[in-house]
Design a protein around this nucleic acid. Structure first.
Lengths: 193, 193
DNA sequence: ATCCAATTGGAACGAATGGTCAAAAATTAC
DNA sequence: GTAATTTTTGACCATTCGTTCCAATTGGAT
């Protein structure tokens, strides 16, 4: 009995994600969204709720469609260290080569909305904890397989990498020397031996 | 002939800095500022210009009154490496112990306003370049004094530390395990040998 | 004491904000 | 074909936004 929607909610959410990612939360107005999403104002409210709900769903989609490749990358069987190194280099290239300098949406969310926005805060923390866990488990495997020193502390190393990666993501928003992030990444990788 | 102001512009700017630092640019309204600065609306415009000008001046004050201690710290005569290590630990403690999780205003500015806001972009880049330069010069001294390996690359190491420090500053906005940043910092310091 | 000039508080500005509502259109099930 | 129900459209809402203006006030210089 319900009438079918004329649009694909997933595709619309993707466009909302694009806008929020590029401009942030406050700087993106409902008028902007109405214009770029291609659907009416009321349809947005009916489908996603208010602006904050829509932002949260966009952030969720961001994590689910951009980050998971990382966890998969880290969970491949076989040698674990190359995956970790590849991850760091991927982040460096990503940040250094990002033409429109949108950075990482999670980092942007943390910087703009935290500490006041609790739903976003929970989301950010969960995202970071997830990456820390994936890194830790990869490093535990690496140590077990003799790829890094037996004395290494996998969790501490994972935490270090986690912080360093977020650093690259913030700094990627600035038009600095692209070699800066590459140099930094090369040094960070020296810690993994 | 000009009449003297009834307020101390420096003190007022300090209060504006406090607000912008905590809430960011967009989320801070002129009404908020009027309420917290203790001076009239027109006085704000007459003294500092519009909202964006005020933000820029607050950001400037932030860098001038919070960061310079760092440059001084790194420029002390004698052994250079302890100063660098102290700096990393200071950032870690700062981020982990920051009760109200306001983070670093430069990082917040970068995440919220970049890449679209060019004046802010210039400011952020200058701030980061300045820290990179100070770190590089300290590490050059450290190498010359035999505190780190002769094969070490001071600039690359400085860039690494720069990125890592900014990472701590973003992540400090989240209520995560405080040990996370301390663990990370300890690992990063292992690179300075 | 007087004039000058700048600062002051507060009212007012139009534009833009996020959100709502009711009428119209459209699709499905019968 | 008809009835039912939901989506869509777009006008509309009160509020808040950053900014400007003006009249009153204030303090400094002569």
């Amino acid at each position: 009995m319900p009438r079918t929607k004329e649009f694909d909610p997933g595709a619309v959410l993707e466009r909302a994600l694009d806008l929020f990612w590029r401009r942030g939360y406050e700087a993106t107005s409902m008028a902007d969204l109405v214009e770029h999403l291609g659907i009416g104002r009321a349809s947005i409210y009916a489908t996603f709720g208010g602006k904050h709900d829509l932002y949260l769903k966009a952030l969720e989609r961001y994590v689910q469609t951009r980050d998971p490749s990382l966890v998969e990358l880290l969970s491949q069987p076989g040698p674990a260290l190359p995956a970790v190194r590849a991850l760091v280099e991927l982040y460096a290239e990503d940040a250094a080569g990002d033409r429109d300098r949108r950075g990482c949406m999670v980092v942007n969310a943390a910087a703009e909305l935290l500490p006041d926005d609790q739903p976003v805060a929970r989301f950010v923390e969960a995202s970071w904890t997830g990456l820390e866990t994936a890194l830790t488990s990869a490093l535990i495997r690496a140590r077990a397989q003799g790829e890094i020193s037996a004395e290494a502390d996998p969790r501490a190393l994972a935490r270090f990498l986690l912080v360093f990666l977020q650093g690259m993501r913030v700094m990627g928003k600035s038009h600095g020397d692209p070699a800066r992030l590459r140099d930094a990444a090369a040094q960070a990788l020296a810690l993994l031996r």
